[in-house]
Design a protein around this nucleic acid. Structure first.
Lengths: 212, 212
DNA sequence: CGCGCTTTTGAGTTTCGTCAACTGGTGTGG
DNA sequence: CCACACCAGTTGACGAAACTCAAAAGCGCG
């Protein structure tokens, strides 16, 4: 799975702003406790968020209380772009976070950069769609782990910042199924669980083979 | 479900081109037989397609031969926008189609219009994600029918241009399940099947109630 | 009419969800 | 320091939903 992530750094490069240039109108990063609400459906869009550190989830809430997490965002990712003048998603911190909000209009140079951001989200959504459409629980978790691994870049050592419930609601599973799949992958010697949140990928080719 | 669809007409309005203005560099619409390949993964992106009439499907192919249809496009819709310089999707006609290709760079006024198109796709994908994540077969089909109804605008009379296999691969189901759900919805008096491809929505509130 | 294709229906199996109990780690207070 | 409570995660038993394989029915077309 190709997980596109577009950082503000990339955006700035597109604008010709190198790290050495004087920053203009930089708003400070804001610290948030875990599980803080950042925005909710109905809030005005127009602000984007650049994550300095931490993890953020965006999600839909359905009438019966079920939750579909549409994405996780990590340090360097930009989130908050939505197609309408008002948000349709919730955004919450998963862990402690430092987040720099900035104005979509004044601090992003025109529609081109916005289009680039939208493209990144499009790529991610397309991949996720395929996963939810035609993949069993084993494949979903395997892909999720491989994706986290590639985004965290710590060579086979994956840290899950989120609880099982978040993984379940992201992948369209239940926490019990998520748990069982971790156990199975462990038995298959594809992963090793140091703790519940810290997982070593022992055989990434084997995991990839499950993803089909 | 909000199904955003953005027609070239809308794009032109954004450019200040009204139906009366002289067209510039209009390429003719091209006619295609059913099941014609329009582009495939690896082909260069940069051309967009405006459907005059007919139905188009875009899809991913997985290594094991399974297919995930990511969207259906109808008369007035524009498709072909993808985040990379090369396509990752297949695009095929479902029925006979007339399609006007146009150049993304020269015939779309800048990134703003592209961004608008990307937004439309984002909205659609987000909705579809939710559907595939947390919805049973009954809900998936019900939503699909209601969505088609709202896009075809013929007040409760839905024409399925595509075979069951396409519906199945779009909704992440099998053709047998699709068929069984149609039968169930019929028994529940929510729909009536004139033919297999022509379906009347008898109780749209009832269908909506199944969608959660 | 007969052929090929799509759709429907049926029977059996698998996968995942539900409900419930249990484990293990963490923090608190006696 | 230990006992306890609490929460996240795991495990087990069972049932429901959807898939698979197979066969029959419907439909368009030469």
């Amino acid at each position: 799975m190709v997980m596109l992530s577009l950082s503000l750094h990339t955006l700035n490069e597109r604008r010709g702003i190198t790290p050495g240039s004087p920053p203009h109108r930089v708003r400070q990063a804001v610290f948030h406790r875990a599980n803080s609400m950042l925005y909710r459906p109905g809030d005005r869009t127009g602000t984007l968020y650049d994550i300095a550190f931490g993890t953020v989830r965006t999600y839909h809430m359905m009438s019966d209380g079920r939750r579909q997490i549409s994405g996780f965002y990590f340090a360097g990712d930009v989130f908050g772009l939505e197609p309408q003048p008002r948000h349709r998603l919730f955004a919450e911190t998963v862990e402690e976070c430092a987040i720099r909000p900035f104005d979509q209009r004044t601090e992003v140079a025109g529609a081109e950069a916005l289009y680039a951001l939208a493209q990144a989200d499009l790529g991610r959504l397309g991949d996720h769609l395929m996963l939810l459409g035609h993949a069993n629980a084993l494949a979903r978790i395997s892909r999720f782990m491989l994706d986290l691994d590639s985004r965290q870049g710590r060579d086979g050592l994956v840290t899950l910042g989120m609880p099982r419930a978040d993984i379940a609601d992201f992948l369209g599973l239940t926490i019990e199924t998520v748990s069982r799949v971790f156990t199975r992958l462990s038995e298959m010697r594809l992963i090793a669980r140091d703790t519940a949140r810290s997982i070593e990928l022992l055989d990434r080719d084997g995991l990839a083979a499950l993803c089909d």
